[in-house]
């Protein structure tokens, strides 16, 4: 599903993003990527979604060789992923419904498909009643739910979340994590980069720890401190 083979990313300014990382994430897994700021969490995710390419090594995602992929294929890679960001990244001049529908329009889904799937996705994240609201009319938690609905609506094989709860209060954060867990239960691979200890500890999932770009531990049913 996702495989890093000796992947290294050195940015043009010399900063090491990732160093010789080899790791494999299987279909249906739920994985936390943890580490302090600058540890390489974001770089790890950026390599998966081809926002960056590795300086050395190989990265495979959903059958695509991300390390040497033609530019024209990038949209197809991204359509096989659902991506959620800390700052939600919703289109400000579209309603919640239209934001979710947009992801389906991109893959040229039939209008009838869109009319069926979008309410389902919004229902799944508990936002059926806010379909017509614009992002500015929604709370942070609600905006993140819309982003989740958008990430899910095309049934991606992998869902990537970069600090999805970074801008949310603890209660809302827990709700979002429960949603991610639910999505994972339905078969989607979920990868979450976070530095929120309480969440990682509570969920008892696989934890990959990065430090200064290096993979320093990879524990099944781990916690933030990797005591077990």
């Amino acid at each position: 599903m996702i495989r890093f083979v000796d992947a290294t990313k050195i940015y043009s300014n010399g900063v090491v993003g990732l160093k010789n990382v080899t790791v494999k994430i299987d279909k249906g897994e739920f994985v936390f990527i943890i580490g302090a700021s600058g540890s390489g969490k974001s770089t790890f995710l950026k390599l998966i979604m081809h926002e960056e390419t590795p300086t050395e090594g190989e990265v495979y995602v959903n059958g695509y060789s991300v390390h040497n992929m033609p530019k024209s294929e990038v949209p197809y890679l991204r359509r096989s992923l659902g991506i959620v960001f800390q700052d939600f990244r919703l289109l400000p001049n579209k309603t919640a419904y239209d934001n979710v529908a947009f992801a389906m329009q991109i893959v040229e889904a039939l209008p009838r498909e869109i009319r069926r799937q979008v309410p389902l996705a919004l229902g799944l994240v508990g936002l059926s009643k806010k379909a017509k609201a614009y992002p500015s009319q929604l709370s942070g938690g609600e905006q993140q739910r819309v982003a989740l609905a958008r990430a899910l609506v095309n049934n991606p094989a992998v869902l990537i979340a970069d600090e999805p709860t970074g801008n949310l209060d603890p209660k809302t954060s827990m709700e979002i994590m429960e949603l991610l867990d639910e999505i994972n239960q339905r078969g989607t691979t979920v990868i979450v980069a976070t530095h929120e200890k309480s969440i990682v500890d509570a969920m008892k999932k696989r934890v990959i720890t990065l430090d200064r770009g290096e993979l320093i531990s990879d524990v099944k049913k781990g916690s933030y401190t990797n005591e077990d």
Binding site: M49, S72, P75, Y76, L77, R78, R79, L81, I83, F85, R89, L90, L91, P92, N93, F102, A103, I106, V107, R150
Partner: peptide
């Protein structure tokens, strides 16, 4: 530009 960036992340191709 943010709008364009978001579209790219959701998987829109350039012509879209």
């Amino acid at each position: 530009r943010k709008e364009i960036e978001i579209m790219k992340y959701v998987g829109a191709n350039d012509w879209f």
